[in-house]
Design a protein around this nucleic acid. Sequence first.
DNA 1: GATGAATGAGCATTCATTCAT
DNA 2: GATGAATGAATGCTCATTCAT
Lengths: 218, 218, 218, 218
Amino acid sequence: MMKKREVQASVKDERLVQKRRDQMIKGAVTLFKQKGFHRTTTREIAKAAGFSIGTLYEYIRTKEDVLYLVCDSIYDHVSERLQQDLSLKSGTLASLKLGIANFFQVMDEMQAEVLVMYQEVKSLSKDALPYVLKKEMEMVAMFADLLTRCVENGELKLTEKQVDIIAHNIFVQGQMWGFRRWALRKLFTLEEYIALQTEILLSGISSEVSASQEVPQK
Amino acid sequence: MMKKREVQASVKDERLVQKRRDQMIKGAVTLFKQKGFHRTTTREIAKAAGFSIGTLYEYIRTKEDVLYLVCDSIYDHVSERLQQDLSLKSGTLASLKLGIANFFQVMDEMQAEVLVMYQEVKSLSKDALPYVLKKEMEMVAMFADLLTRCVENGELKLTEKQVDIIAHNIFVQGQMWGFRRWALRKLFTLEEYIALQTEILLSGISSEVSASQEVPQK
Amino acid sequence: MMKKREVQASVKDERLVQKRRDQMIKGAVTLFKQKGFHRTTTREIAKAAGFSIGTLYEYIRTKEDVLYLVCDSIYDHVSERLQQDLSLKSGTLASLKLGIANFFQVMDEMQAEVLVMYQEVKSLSKDALPYVLKKEMEMVAMFADLLTRCVENGELKLTEKQVDIIAHNIFVQGQMWGFRRWALRKLFTLEEYIALQTEILLSGISSEVSASQEVPQK
Amino acid sequence: MMKKREVQASVKDERLVQKRRDQMIKGAVTLFKQKGFHRTTTREIAKAAGFSIGTLYEYIRTKEDVLYLVCDSIYDHVSERLQQDLSLKSGTLASLKLGIANFFQVMDEMQAEVLVMYQEVKSLSKDALPYVLKKEMEMVAMFADLLTRCVENGELKLTEKQVDIIAHNIFVQGQMWGFRRWALRKLFTLEEYIALQTEILLSGISSEVSASQEVPQK
DNA sequence: GATGAATGAGCATTCATTCAT
DNA sequence: GATGAATGAATGCTCATTCAT
């Protein structure tokens, strides 16, 4: 796990800093969702967080810090959820399916946050960007690990490269649901989407027989 | 095909308008790539396009018009390329593979433009956004058509829903190469990426025997 | 009569200059009425006049020239109308009444133009302003002359100062009808206004008996 | 009395808002006098008021707000002065004369402000204009009241319409002194002007014998 | 003589950031 | 620690004027 990039605060009391930042992040996410990072003013963030503009600047140095804090917080939430699901599973096909399903579920729940993050990361300074990108790689790596364990267990037959690309695909298809929900919702429910993607993903890969009969035919 | 949303120009000469807008788009893409839409000033756009700020505003009404013009131009380029590839092909597996490969190729070539577009669309007004999103759906539909023809020819066995989701997947995996090249490049060349994705896509789907022997083993 | 302040034109043909300027003034008055001088652009003036912005500048040097031309033209019209009425009349009370009535009538007809002029004169340069103000004094002087002739004829008994102030009053009350028509119209018709003002003006001044029976009692 | 149209301020402290706006109005009047509303920039207003452009916008929303504030303030001053004079007087001829004299005096003192207002009101938005015009009607109404009381007391013999028109005349003659001082000053002192106008006004109207002996013969 | 594309100084307004209270 | 008034650089956009065709 990486060392956190520090955002400097004037206030000393660590507990207070955390509390204020949580308020700040909560307010900022709502605003960024609505209007994006650039169209949101620091005053609005302060107001949404429930304190004055002066106080806001006691806990951050620049507006960009808020974006970083938001991105960091989102990743923490998603990572945490994933870790719970993934780390404990043995390398079985069933656990893989569950992991994927849960990931898509998280992406659905945090859709707004994830959307915000992907549209605004590029606004992060050269300083913060790599940190955030590395976080993303960590999440892809979790899926790669899961797949690798399945391969080791003989449940899947994949080359290393295939493991990598499929891990990426899972991750991207999860994001896709968050990103393109406006289009996909017209075609599928989340459950259908999960079932279809899982089936396609595994159909050519698993040692099992094709699972096509599992696809819900709405 | 949709009717184009018009961007109003003060200048009457249509040929000149086209020329100046091309200069403008070219300059703007470069700048948006570097700094994003919001951090780019209209003055910078004018300068990059090779004319004065006053002249810029002879060809657009607002800064957002530039973004719209950029997005529109990107879609036109990509669509055009796709149409060439896709429309002429008969519904054979070979033609599908070619179509996918070409799409990924376009995404690689236009990576910067596509990246710009995806990070900035949300900055479009409520007026322009649906137009751009519809363009995207058109492109997904091209793949869906292609797949449907393969199904009709008996080369693939897919339900309608599967056609839809796979069309989306192809599209998103193309974008993924554009978006996440920074990560993927460390793992694959474009050719490998194309080969791997194609294989995974078709392995569980086609009526043929698994095509695993085609995967390049670098 | 003053020498006209010249507005320089690039075009030589005097007849053409006059024609184009008439178009220009007509268009400009309409626009100034609607939006005032400052909110009207030279492009709009050119368009309203029926030619291009380039052509506009063949006949004037600056935007302010248009305002001067407009003001000058309005004064010419009003002066001309007044001169017809006033100069020919002998110094009788009846002729005075007629003169006043006609002036108020003109002010009613040219209300828009006069309104424009009074709200925009201050925008004239230090160069043009005195010229326009002198025009105004000339018009006041016409009334003073008329009154003086009445005094000489024994129809009125007035000191010189009284002549001056009454001339001003007549002029200002005429303008008042133009300026404050929005308020006055709710109270009086033009005819009533003329009758009332005339009566008030003359009641304390003329050698006759009070003319109160002339007041229309609507 | 009308409800005030509110001009929104970001600053909360009402006392400070009033103080800053007073500074602002004072600076703005000076500038508008010199160059008119349109030729005055917001930066100049801020500077004249003694603070930065940013601070200016903490107390107004748009440049037009400054104009409105100026107009409003002028009316308040004039109204206040008038109210003191007019409201307390019984309906005697002497009090009427005093009222008129005081009004002309105010117009002389506030000449610059009044001039500014009359040349710039038309620049007010459709929102603010009616408010300002109504203020004007209120002032005319004060004179009408005064005249009516004189009629009731038998000091004047006037029809209702005559009351209305004379109230308007008084008001306009007051403004005339402010507006046309450049011309009138050559002919009269303020005192002479007041005396002459009062005499003319009352000579045909009052129940007294003509007051011509009161005219100052400078 | 007429046209209209090009120019760029100028302007209103915003907003991140600071700092005295 | 909290507040919010003050700041002024920065920005989108306008428009009078010019000049090559």
